[in-house]
Computed example of a mutant assay.
Amino acid sequence: MAETEKPSLKEQVALLPLSPGVYQFVDRSGTIIYVGKAKSLRKRVSSYFVQSKEHSAKVRVLVKQIVEIRHIVVGSETDALLLENSLIKSLQPRYNILLKDDKTYPWIVVRREHFPRVQSTRILTRDGSQYFGPYGSVMMQRSVLDFIREVVPLRTCKLNLAPEPIAKGKYSVCLQYHLGNCKGPCVGLQSEEEYAQLVGMVVSVLKGDLRPVRQYLEGEMGRAAGELKFELAQRYKQRLDALDNYAGRSVIVSAKIVDVDVFSLLPDDDVAWCNFVRIRHGSIVGVQTVKLSTGIGGDERDMLTLAIQHIVENIAGGELAREVIVPLLPSTTLLFGGVTFTVPKRGEKLELLEFSQKSARIYRAE
């Protein structure tokens, strides 16, 4: 009996459902060469077959090799993300590796360099820099970066500020110095030690603790006023106002949720990823994920307890909000006095937990 002829690619795309799911591209040898996820399978897959200048050369080569499209329908985008990650890990499709840079998420990086810059990035490089995120949206990431640049005077230039070129007088101050947004480290007007203190405040902000930068601004404002430098004092007052505005502005949380911390846990063999989200005054002020060694076969409640303890001691400034949202109750709450742990079943608190879980999954995938 003759082998049944496969439908054309156009017909295969037309038969795809509009449901969320995972799609697989197969070449002539029957090998899966690419796995992807979609909110709507038909819409996402059809986009590959539309002539577009936005397609990279690698994508165009990929499309030419597709002879079959397979798909798996799932219940939600979150399930699609999980299944996609699992299939990529197990199948190692060639084009997922080649196109890895096409699927990135927004992070904030504190560069490892003389007079470190704080920047947006989508690429994680093992160069000793500090990375914070991933952020669930570019809007949220930009909101945090804009706030940092508004209240903490750090450089944004691309100059190499090693000691030698500064000592040789190679540079001159730019407009940002005259606007008060930079203190002139390029011409030796600011030491690395003083600059490092400012970077430390930024790191605290990225971890969800606004107290150090508030204390700094209040101190500088008082000092300027005492020296009768009223214009400078007014500048620090404006930065304090920006701090209050940032702390009171909702990024993705409604006014119903004021001060909470959120933890999610993603166990995987002998490690676990724990994401921490800090909400203050109804606004997300910190997002960070850490990878912890847990040992094989550990109890998830014990893992969560250890993860919270680690983050409290090393990231969250030694304290927790009075309410902490978690996916399951820790094995002991005695370590966290005065804290109420909530395992949400519905509503906005559950959405916050799901956001945290998504961030952990993105971190693991990256």
Rank of each mutant, 00 (worst) to 15 (best):
L352V: 09
Q141R: 14
L161E: 02
V109L: 01
V26F: 04
I72K: 09
M1K: 08
S90E: 15
K229F: 11
L16P: 05
A225Y: 14
V67H: 04
Y177K: 03
S40T: 11
D241P: 04
G75I: 01
D27W: 02
A162I: 00
P17C: 12
S56E: 06
D209V: 07
F132Y: 15
S264C: 13
N160I: 07
Y135W: 14
S129Y: 06
S331M: 03
K237H: 15
E194L: 10
G226V: 03
I108M: 00
V118S: 11
V213S: 05
S204L: 02
K39Y: 05
V271E: 13
T78R: 14
Q51Y: 12
K89Y: 06
N181E: 12
L15R: 15
G219W: 05
A242P: 05
S47Q: 07
I33Y: 05
E164F: 04
A80G: 01
Q234H: 11
T121W: 00
G184R: 05
L81Y: 14
V61G: 00
G338Q: 02
K358M: 12
V251K: 01
E192G: 01
D209C: 02
I97S: 14
N85F: 04
S56Y: 03
D259K: 05
P330E: 09
K64S: 15
L82E: 09
D241Y: 11
V205N: 02
E194P: 08
G298A: 15
S120F: 00
T78I: 10
L292N: 06
V324Q: 06
G337K: 14
L266R: 09
Q197V: 10
V260M: 05
R223E: 13
A167V: 01
K345M: 08
G36Q: 06
L16F: 11
E354V: 13
V45E: 01
V258A: 08
V290K: 12
L335C: 01
E194I: 03
E366A: 07
V74S: 01
K168W: 06
N181R: 13
G295K: 02
L16V: 08
D302W: 11
S356I: 03
K349A: 08
E354I: 10
R214K: 14
Q234V: 03
K291R: 15
S250A: 12
E194M: 10
F276M: 06
K6E: 15
L62W: 03
V50N: 09
P7L: 12
I252D: 03
L41M: 08
V339N: 01
V138P: 00
L159F: 12
K6Q: 14
V260D: 09
L83T: 03
L145S: 03
S204Q: 08
E193G: 03
I33M: 06
E68S: 11
P330D: 11
L83C: 03
L304M: 12
T333P: 00
R149D: 11
K103V: 09
L16G: 08
G337S: 13
M140Q: 10
T332P: 02
T294H: 05
